Amino acid sequence: MRPERILIVSLDNLGDLIFASALVPPIKKRFPNTVVTVWCKAYTAELGPLLPGVDNVVASDPFWDRAPGHRKGALGPFTRVALSLRKERFDVALLAAAPWRTAAAVAALGIPMRIGLLRPRNQRFLTHPLPAEDRTRPVLEEASRLLQPLGIEAATLRYRLDATRLVRRREDLAERLGNTPLVALHAFASKRNRCVNPAAWIMVAETLEARGYKPMWVGSSAELTELRQIVGTRSSWLYADSTLGGSLIDVAAALSLARLFVGHDSGPMHIASALGVPTVGIFAPGEPSRTFPQGVGSFRVLFRESPHGVTPEAILVEVDALFSSPLVQANPAHWAK
């Protein structure tokens, strides 16, 4: 089998798209002439040019789901995009995540080979349903099973973003931001009950600044506005929404310049890891054995059952350990508890 066109479907959030992108390099290695298209949410599509091996990116927001900080997608625009994809006559669709509505939408495209992991009510829409995801295992280890029906036995997958495509933005930002080493901080999680107290983050930022780093806070405009109200005036601290303009591609460029990333399990954490930035991921609690940083950068993981158990001292211990004892693969025995 030599498919001419493959559709990677990732109608989920930012981190999910980065995980899904790891499927493309082994596909291109096996089928170098295959055209690979990624179908994703609109807000994540900005990263499309950074996804290695991806030829086309098509964006639409599913009408049954909402992106963070956005409304649900609308039926009309979603249907128009789906109809345009149907005309492409893809040979294969790989569903990075296959909830039944996504699987049904892909089935409506008329793609003859549709591969996905089993979920409730999705089997009828897949031609190659695979055993359900084991949520105790790393995301990319489970995702690699999607390649097996194509005859691809991938080695350990790692996600990566291509920073060479950010050269002009990096140069511009480097000139504006100066020579002080950047530390990127992301104090927000997808759920508020997983967020570490802002006071702890402020102490971490102050300590790292005293060590010679320039703190750069990343997050949505609403999150960063809230943070500024708590922090007060700190002229030496940078905020992604005001310093960078808030675009996702500019945030990626700034993250690629950072010497260190510290933040919650989130899309920005996975962007940093995909760009090779040394990363401390905070899980409070989350699923560290499943969604730890799986990019090309070194990392450490700080795990607690509750954000109340995460202290500035514990975060800084992991920062120090990142440079003395970095992790390059999953080992839950090493998660700091």
Rank of each mutant, 00 (worst) to 15 (best):
P293T: 09
I315V: 15
L130D: 02
T156M: 10
E171L: 02
W335C: 09
L224N: 06
L140P: 00
N13R: 15
P120Q: 10
G76E: 14
F299G: 04
E175K: 11
E141K: 06
A96S: 07
S60K: 09
P68D: 14
W39H: 08
G212K: 09
A143D: 04
R89L: 04
P181Q: 13
S220G: 14
F299K: 04
S247G: 06
A97M: 09
P332H: 09
G276A: 08
D265L: 12
D265I: 10
A222K: 12
E153T: 15
A105P: 02
G212V: 13
A132D: 07
Q148W: 08
G69R: 13
A108S: 15
L17A: 06
R121Q: 11
W100C: 10
V280Q: 06
S144N: 07
A154H: 03
P3Y: 02
V92K: 00
H264A: 14
L322A: 13
Q123T: 08
L224E: 15
L95T: 02
T225G: 11
P120G: 04
R137N: 06
G212C: 10
I230H: 02
P77N: 11
R114W: 05
R135Q: 09
T34R: 02
A20C: 10
V167A: 01
G178N: 05
V38K: 01
A98V: 07
R2V: 11
H334N: 13
H308F: 10
T180I: 13
Q148F: 08
A143M: 14
A67Q: 14
K29N: 10
L11W: 07
E142K: 05
V54W: 00
V328A: 10
D241S: 06
G286M: 11
K41Y: 03
S266L: 13
V9R: 05
P293F: 07
A74F: 08
V106L: 09
A199P: 04
P181L: 13
L257M: 09
A187K: 03
G297F: 01
L166I: 00
K72E: 11
L177G: 03
A96V: 07
S273F: 04
V54F: 01
L126I: 06
K29E: 15
V36H: 00
L224Y: 10
A103L: 12
T279I: 07
S21P: 01
M203F: 04
F303D: 08
L147A: 07
A97V: 08
